[in-house]
Amino acid sequence: MSNLQQQRSAVTHIDGNLHQNADARIGIVVARFNGFVVESLVDGAIDALLRHGVLGSNITVIRVPGAFELPLVAQRAAESDRFDAIVALGAIIRGSTPHFDFVASESAKGLSNVATDYNIPVANGVLTTDSIEQAIERAGTKAGNKGSEAAMVVLEMIAVLSQLDIDDSSDIV
């Protein structure tokens, strides 16, 4: 075995898995605006969590008026220490004014800040589309269900972070 192969085999890999999730406590923060699309995202997220072993009693759905309100409620949920991860779901569909850009940008930035400020996985499952047709496609038809995908993201992130939290100070110099 060459030195390069030896060095390659010594590399540590940390990967998330989707097993052992019964104890995961998941908050799903949902924007009611564009509910005809968003409810499919909620169904997809809940289905994915249950299929991967999360107990129904460990899933809490919190509804807010729209995508702009998601970060504040996600922050409050993170502060509560009731959840191991948060899934944010909503749909922002472009209109004829710049309102779309402001809401999409602030919602995404706010959700990202919650994750880093509170050290908790936050999946941004907020659709940002140019048309109703695109939103419908991403909520369970041609493009899959982005709510389901967001739920899978938080499960994987819980697993990754739990591996990083293992205290093995004997290796630290």
Rank of each mutant, 00 (worst) to 15 (best):
A91E: 11
L41M: 12
N145Y: 03
F68Q: 08
I166K: 12
T97H: 10
D43L: 09
V42D: 10
F83S: 02
H19T: 15
V54H: 13
E156L: 08
E133T: 11
L49S: 12
G125N: 06
I93C: 09
I158M: 14
G35H: 02
S148K: 01
S170G: 09
R51Y: 05
V153K: 07
S107R: 04
S2W: 04
R51V: 10
N124R: 03
R94Q: 13
A104C: 03
S40R: 07
A88S: 13
D101Y: 12
S80D: 07
G27E: 10
F83D: 10
I62Q: 05
F33W: 14
D117G: 05
Y118Q: 03
F33H: 02
D84N: 11
I28H: 01
A139P: 08
L49T: 09
A88H: 09
N3L: 15
H19F: 13
I136S: 04
A151R: 06
A77R: 00
Q134P: 08
P65S: 12
R94A: 04
V126L: 05
D130C: 09
D101P: 07
D43S: 10
H19S: 14
G44K: 00
M1W: 06
D130A: 12
I28F: 02
S105F: 15
M157F: 07
A67Q: 00
A45E: 04
R76N: 14
G110Q: 13
K142R: 11
D47I: 01
K109E: 06
V87M: 09
R138Y: 07
E137P: 00
A24H: 06
A67S: 15
V30G: 05
L70S: 00
R32P: 11
N21G: 00
G56Q: 14
F33N: 06
V64W: 06
